[in-house]
Design a protein around this nucleic acid. Structure first.
Lengths: 195, 195
DNA sequence: GTCTATAGGTCGATAGAC
DNA sequence: GTCTATCGACCTATAGAC
């Protein structure tokens, strides 16, 4: 239990963030104490304040890092030639990316209300940026005649809500593989906005 | 500030539940104190315990009442003749019902994790019951040949996630009327599971 | 039915030793 | 870099007066 004396600055910071992510996702930001996070890492509560100015900043940094990862990962994906193929890539990317980091995804839509106004605005802007990437695909498809959505903004929100919902029920080793889930959702999305 | 002496038992109970619903939805169960709820109602914290045995039961009662309302309201809807018409009725019902009580809806998917295991299991069973009502419609349509879903269970979950998502962005007096939102979502759902 | 008072505990954050 | 100790505030829930 007792910590060995010594210097661990390079690894303690990341470990604090990992522990905070897991505990916030499991019990909720307000329900988790700094003492619990410290215990998980194996340090005393006071030591956390060498790595974060306060609990709020710890939450913000986790959400910010997740949104930056999400946007960078989508940016790094290859871009298929047609809007329909780009839409399929988006569907499969979103499911895969979210299933790979369920805690961060959960935190990002459960703990928004615990952000202070400025922090909230920054995360919201990133979320809207991501939604706009999808809406752009739908608009392109509409212009090309391959996609028909009654309202591209609502279609983008509806598709993202539907895809993110996978995280609430998917279990590794369950009835369906990830690829099969991707196939099923792509079938529904494709038809929902088919011309 | 000081309360007038007197008896108010018939109205204090409901007012406590209303205040708790609003505050839990706004700030989160763990972040709201019994003192805050009491202050909102205009009584002292100790008086709350005449109406609820503890904070956990207060949360459970709010979620249970919401799920019971939801299931009873859907049960009370007229039942159209064809599965496709029943699906349309479900889509419009779900959007309308949820937009009428955003706090209760928000609470019902944000605070599940703050329920103790037995309470959680009871709410989850009600949620599954509601999902199964939708899946039944999809199965009927599949059997009749008017609906084609690659997986009726996943289609039901996807549709509910998509519809519930409306609550996150809809604002009264905004760009779209409720009926128009219902039209747009029905268009997407209809096509998504079209035969 | 509501109040005041309080028991018994936890919290976030800081100070200062090592 | 981490620890121990602590401040001041707040928490849930209960006891007992009115």
């Amino acid at each position: 239990m007792a910590r060995k004396t010594g210097s661990h600055s390079e690894i303690t910071g990341p470990r604090i963030r990992e522990a905070a992510l897991r505990l916030f996702a499991r019990d909720g930001f307000a329900a988790v104490s700094m003492r619990q996070i410290a215990a998980e890492v194996g340090v005393q509560a006071g030591a956390l304040y060498l790595y974060t100015p306060d609990k709020q900043t710890l939450l913000f940094d986790l959400l910010k890092a997740h949104m930056d990862d999400l946007i960078a990962a989508w940016q790094a994906e290859p871009v298929p030639a047609t809007p329909t193929d780009r839409l399929e890539a988006f569907v499969r990317f979103h499911i895969r990316f979210n299933l790979d980091r369920p805690d961060a995804v959960f935190l990002s839509y459960m703990e928004l209300r615990n952000l202070e106004p400025d922090n909230f605005a920054e995360i919201e802007a990133l979320r809207r940026h991501y939604e706009n990437r999808l809406e752009g695909i739908l608009r392109d498809g509409q212009a090309a005649g391959s996609i028909a959505a009654p309202d591209t903004k609502l279609a983008a929100l509806a598709i993202i809500a539907m895809l993110t919902g996978v995280n609430t029920w998917y279990r590794e080793g369950g009835r369906l593989s990830r690829d099969r889930v991707g196939d099923i959702y792509w079938d529904m999305v494709r038809k929902a906005v088919a011309a």
